[in-house]
């Protein structure tokens, strides 16, 4: 089994809202997969379909070689989930909820539980109604991470954590990865995604717009180049993939698509390069490009990893 999650052409509508509109998602076993997209893109809906809480209208979804709807109970023995909005029973204590959820999944690993509680600095005696948002999230994280499951499904698990706890969380995920577990991580925190994820899938309006490794995605976006040349540069704007050319006495600056970088630099060498500064796209730029309205649909699968 090499795919932990395999979704193709998934459609889910709520009345007239098309929440998912032909979504594709492939998560290989053992990888940490980032699941990104602007608000309302359909990440949570996808996850809820994977958990068998919602039923898809059409398309295929395979989770750990099973059907998320039909085999829900069996599959849930092998996964743990942290919801984006953690809602707990107001009159139970955090410790009770952790034990309950672990027992439902087959048993408490007391040592692991206590370690997690200590590292996340959580007071398990408090009633859930009195927890802050971040602390509620910690309860759900401890419950999920203390079980020895092969797949972790995390929907914005750190949206309420402080930076210190956020880095503790990252340690947990790296440990889980080292243990060979698979993680599906939906997140808006790009630094977290960059640090943890092997590959990412970006969705928008219920469709997959990009997927691949971060390096591959970077390759797809533009690099900014500023160069000083011996002779004035000519003909640059006729090259494919070159944008926003600006010439200013001996210096030229432009943006170039990752795929055309080689050609652009070759072109520059004809004019004698004296200095060259290249700026790779920041992660923010990369995502803003995909989140914004100017996405050319059809980019799909351009860097589909083999």
């Amino acid at each position: 089994m090499s795919q932990a999650i395999s979704i193709s052409n998934l459609v889910k509508t709520f009345g007239s809202t098309r929440a998912l509109d032909g979504l594709d998602l492939e998560v290989s076993t053992g990888e940490v997969h980032g699941f990104l997209g602007p608000n309302g893109a359909g990440k949570t809906v996808t996850i809820r379909i994977l958990l068998g809480l919602l039923r898809a209208d059409s398309g295929h979804a395979v989770l750990l070689d099973g059907d998320p709807w039909v085999d829900a109970v069996e599959l849930h023995r092998r996964l743990a989930y942290v919801p984006g909005d953690v809602n707990l029973w107001p009159n139970l204590s955090g410790g009770e909820v952790i034990d309950l959820l672990s027992r439902l999944r087959g048993g408490v690993d007391a040592a692991r539980r206590d370690e997690l509680i200590e590292r996340l600095v959580l007071d398990p005696r408090k009633k859930c109604r009195t927890y802050s948002k971040g602390n509620r999230q910690k309860v759900a994280l401890v419950a999920a991470l203390s079980s020895h499951v092969e797949l972790l499904v995390l929907d914005e698990p750190t949206s309420g954590l402080d930076p210190l706890m956020e880095s503790v969380f990252q340690e947990f995920i790296l440990e889980a990865k080292a243990e060979g577990r698979t993680v599906l991580l939906s997140s808006h925190i790009l630094a977290e995604v960059e640090k943890l994820c092997d590959r990412v899938t970006i969705i928008r309006q219920g469709r997959t717009v990009q997927r691949g490794t971060l390096a591959e995605l970077r390759h797809l976006t533009r690099t900014s180049i500023t160069a000083g040349t011996e002779r004035p540069v000519e003909g640059l704007d006729t090259l494919a993939g070159v944008h926003d050319v600006g010439v200013d006495d001996g210096h030229v600056s432009f943006d170039v698509d990752g795929a055309e970088l080689d050609g652009a630099v070759r072109h520059l060498t004809q004019f004698g390069i004296r200095s060259l500064v290249s700026q790779p796209p920041t992660l923010e730029e990369l995502f803003l490009r995909h989140y914004g309205d100017d996405v050319v649909v059809g980019d799909d699968d351009a860097v589909d990893a083999p």
């Binding site: 809820r48 958990l51 068998g52 809480l53 829900a72 109970v73 069996e74 849930h76 023995r77 996964l79 743990a80 989930y81 919801p83 909005d85 953690v86 809602n87 707990l88 029973w89 909820v97 959820l101 439902l104 999944r105 087959g106 759900a140 419950a143 499904v153």
Partner: peptide, 15 residues
């Protein structure tokens, strides 16, 4: 509606 059922049903508990 309060979203607590998710925690239970994402464990191996049948509806």
């Amino acid at each position: 509606t309060d979203g607590r059922v998710e925690s239970v049903l994402s464990a191996p508990v049948a509806r």
